[in-house]
């Protein structure tokens, strides 16, 4: 036993230390880009980082951060959920419809989260029990949920006028520059990050993403973890739907369509690789903040908004290309180190 254990114990801290450093570098890199961009904008336009300006930046990022954190949990397990935009749309309308009928705002949020979790359960069951590629299944449920949404809503829409003022205020106000919504999103972010980092079941998400087969053989309940990731993702999309309603007060049958691509961009820019098993939700939150900030920065430095989409896309490409090059470097270093230890042992 000890002879087989020894090399493993030696190898793990070295590789983890290196990997950790790279991941931290990754988050630092996004943060640096973000800070540089905001600073440059501030120098150009001194009204940009006013109290209201900061508040708007945070408010804009909130909803994307929530959905992207959920998506990250799924992507870490080497799956993907393309239906988040549709789930956001339908839960936002459900919450609005409930409030319109005089419901309790807190219950409306719970309802949205539960509905989102339900759709997540559906996705998770199809992926984990049916063992069909997640991309195809969630592309299907993207259509199905959007269709149900459209049939249910028809040409109706929810406007801010029919919602309770307390709910709308919650979506706009905050503690000076810190919106309530951002506080909520930050709480969720910290909770998810803590879970993924410190809980055994959280670590199993990563194990599963690195190698589903190995994780299964090591006793990780693969299907249950995948199911949990999808339920969490759906629930967070539902929460984001309710917050979307509070923030914008306006929901129709097109709400959230096409959002999945923005979410996936935020996740990938944030350093969670599509191949699973790597990245952190803090990186994802920074990625989401970066993407939404670009949308505010460009107009305020006088760049036409037609550039936004192209820049988003190119940023995504640069992010994954840089990731890949870094990963190749790390693999090269690890290989060299392994070769050195091997030759040292033989020598």
């Amino acid at each position: 036993m000890t002879t087989t254990m020894e090399p493993v114990r030696v190898a793990v801290p070295a590789s983890r230390g290196l990997l950790d450093r790279v991941l931290k570098m990754r988050e630092l890199a996004i943060l640096a880009v973000l800070v540089l961009m905001l600073a440059a904008t501030q120098i150009d336009n001194s009204a940009f980082l006013s109290q209201q300006g900061i508040k708007d930046l945070l408010l804009n990022a909130t909803i994307l951060v929530l959905v992207a954190v959920g998506e990250a949990m799924v992507v870490i397990t080497r799956n993907v959920d393309l239906s988040v935009g549709s789930v956001l749309g339908i839960t936002a309308f459900a919450a609005g419809d409930f409030l319109q009928g005089g419901g309790n705002p807190l219950l409306a949020v719970v309802l949205a989260v539960a509905l989102g979790a339900g759709f997540g359960l559906l996705n998770g069951l199809l992926v984990s029990i049916g063992q069909v590629p997640a991309l195809v299944v969630t592309l299907g449920t993207l259509y199905i949920i959007r269709g149900i949404d459209s049939i249910w809503i028809g040409s109706r829409e929810i406007t801010a006028g029919v919602l309770p003022t307390g709910f709308i205020d919650f979506g706009h106000n905050g503690l000076s520059a810190l919106p309530y919504l951002a506080v909520l999103a930050a709480a969720v972010l910290v909770a998810v990050a803590y879970f993924l980092r410190n809980y055994r079941s959280g670590r199993e998400f990563y194990a599963l993403g690195s190698s589903p087969e190995a994780a299964g053989l090591a006793g990780v309940p693969v299907r249950r973890r995948i199911l949990a990731a999808y339920i969490a993702c759906g629930a967070l999309a539902g929460l984001a739907g309710a917050l979307y309603l509070a923030r914008f007060g306006n929901v129709d049958s097109g709400t959230g369509s096409g959002y999945e691509l923005t979410v996936v961009s935020a996740v990938v820019v944030g350093g969670v690789a599509f191949t699973g098993g790597s990245g952190s939700v803090y990186g994802v939150a920074l990625g989401a903040l970066l993407l939404t900030s670009i949308n505010s920065v460009l107009p305020s430095i006088g760049v036409s908004s037609v550039w936004v989409q192209a820049i988003d896309g190119i940023l995504l490409l640069v992010a994954i290309a840089v990731d890949r090059i870094l990963a190749l470097r790390v693999a090269g270093i690890l290989r060299k180190r392994a070769a050195e230890t091997r030759s040292a042992r033989h020598g």
């Binding site: 691509l261 996936v264 550039w307 936004v308 989409q309 192209a310 896309g313 190119i314 490409l317």
Partner: peptide, 11 residues
């Protein structure tokens, strides 16, 4: 890659 170029080309 192609999600990135999806946004980039459209942009």
């Amino acid at each position: 890659v192609t999600i990135g170029t999806l946004a980039a080309y459209r942009g």
